[in-house]
Design a binder for these strands. Structure first.
Lengths: 113, 113
DNA sequence: GAATTATATAAGATTATGGTTATATGTTCA
DNA sequence: TGAACATATAACCATAATCTTATATAATTC
C-alpha cells in the first residue's frame, strides 16, 4: 500500500517549491548532495535565510541530513511520499537543468565537499 | 522557437498552484470549462475571494475567458508557455483526479452550464 | 579551555497573502 | 428605464512569509 498524498499536501509541496531559492535548492540536491554553505554561496544569501528555507524543506520531509564535522550535507529524502512526483516535476521543468548546472558550477568552496 | 520559461517563472507557477483553492480550480478547468459560480459553490467561498484567485491565474496567463450573458466561462489557456508543464504536472499529482471529480460533482448549478 | 567554524534559533521589521464587506460595472429582462 | 444577476474592484484586516541582526549550539583545532 502506498503512502497517501492528498490535495492539501500537494498544494503544500507547490507552495514550498514556489520560491526561487527553494526550488533551486531542491533541484540542486536532486543532482547531488549539497552543503548548507553551497546555498549561501550560490544564492548570495545570508546563512540564517538559507537555514530557514531548509527548515521548510525539512518540515515537509523532503530532505535528509548527514553530519560530518563542521558541515551538514543535505540530500533529497528518497523515502518522501513526494519523491516520485518531485522527480517527474523536476524533469518537466523547462530550463531547470541548465540553471542548476550553472548554480552548481558557481559553488567554489572546496573544504566542505 | 519555443517560448522561454525561466526558473523564476516556474517558481511563480508553483506559487500560484501552492494554494488548495487555486490548485483545485486549475485541475477542474483542465477537465472542463468552468464558470465563476462553479467555484464559489464548490469551495463554499465568497465571490470576491474566487475573483481574486482568478485574477492571479489570469495575471500568469493561465486562463482564457468566454463571456456569455451573465456568465464568464473559464478555461485553461492552451497557448500558455506553462501548458505542457502544467498538464504533466496535473497528471502526476496523486489523488487529484478523484478529488476533481468529487468537486465537479458537487456543482449543482445548471443555469450557467 | 579558548578561538574558530558551521549551523540553528530568536526576535523584529516589512511585505505578501487571503479573506471580509461594500461598492462599481456590465448584462439581461420585464 | 429600472430591477436582478454575475463578476470585478477597493478598502481593510489578520496572518504568513521572508528577510535582517543578534545570539545559541555544537564540532574542531590550537
Amino acid at each position: 500500500m502506498e503512502t497517501t498524498v492528498d490535495i492539501n499536501d500537494v498544494a503544500e509541496l507547490f507552495k514550498v517549491l514556489g520560491d526561487h531559492s527553494r526550488l533551486s535548492m531542491v533541484a540542486m540536491m536532486y543532482k547531488k548532495e549539497c552543503c548548507v554553505c553551497d546555498f549561501t554561496e550560490c544564492f548570495n544569501m545570508s546563512q540564517p535565510a538559507v537555514s530557514q528555507h531548509l527548515k521548510r524543506l525539512r518540515t515537509l520531509g523532503l530532505i535528509t541530513e548527514r553530519k560530518d564535522g563542521y558541515w551538514t550535507h543535505l540530500s533529497l529524502n528518497s523515502d518522501s511520499p513526494f519523491m516520485e512526483m518531485l522527480s517527474k516535476l523536476l524533469a518537466t521543468t523547462p530550463g531547470l537543468d541548465a540553471h542548476v548546472d550553472r548554480l552548481l558550477a558557481s559553488c567554489t568552496r572546496e573544504a566542505c565537499c
